[in-house]
Nucleic acid binder design. Sequence first.
DNA 1: AGCGATGTTCGCCG
DNA 2: TCGGCGAACATCGC
Length: 261
Amino acid sequence: MPELPEVETFKRYLDSTSLMKTIKKVEVRDRRILSCTITALKKTLQGKTFKNSIRHGKNLFVDLDSSYLMLHFGMTGDLEAFENKDDEPRYSKVLFEFTDGTFLSYVSMRMFGRVGVVDDMDEYLTEKKLGPDALKMNYTEFKEALNKRSAIAKSALLNQEIFAGIGNIYSDEILFRTRIHPKTKINLLEEEQLKALFKNIKDVLEYGIEHEGELSEYSQDFLIPHRDKEERCPKCGTEIERYEISGRHGFFCPLCQKIAK
DNA sequence: AGCGATGTTCGCCG
DNA sequence: TCGGCGAACATCGC
């Protein structure tokens, strides 16, 4: 379930369960999940300590002092800490064993996530062309990121090169809150709308983090609990519509969210 | 039994 | 160059 709020939740989970622990052994259950060689992963991690973790967008970096373990969770990634090796979860792809006898699994049902090592975090972000983190950016950076962009709002929010961390579900929520139609061209938004958009990006992502990405527990005032056919807009009661943009489907309220022209 | 899915990437085309 | 489209990737649950 990984958009920015979920990845931030994973970060906090990793921090509370595994920080300052030293890696005794790494076991790879399916090497297709790796973005580096199995040898490089083991060689880099063995004997290193999880000093700190840094989240940028949907990427989680674990500081090993001279390099980083990079975790991307794809569509189904998760982390699970446990104390007995017998408890290794289903779909565990990479198992980290610490010297204190505890474990951490990178879990993913599918093969869309990635685990690897990177020497230089900034270099990695540049290489992947990732924009500023959606939660950490300030208004100036937000405006700068959108500068000269003409994409429709939905695509812009999903584009990790503009800013990093927003995915399909939260982008719909942000647009709903800001009352922007997903197909509104981003460069047609007025200053007031941009300010509201910026604020709602923060508010929605922060709300998500506070609720640890538990979508089922979100307030009924949100669009998120109404992402379904025959659901009604929590603000005006109009039937929610389904739409599709480049193969991604989403939901919006046709009355609340009008196209700016 | 087929379809859809919280992500990323790439080639094609306007 | 930018941006939209659609497919590919992988695999399970509904």
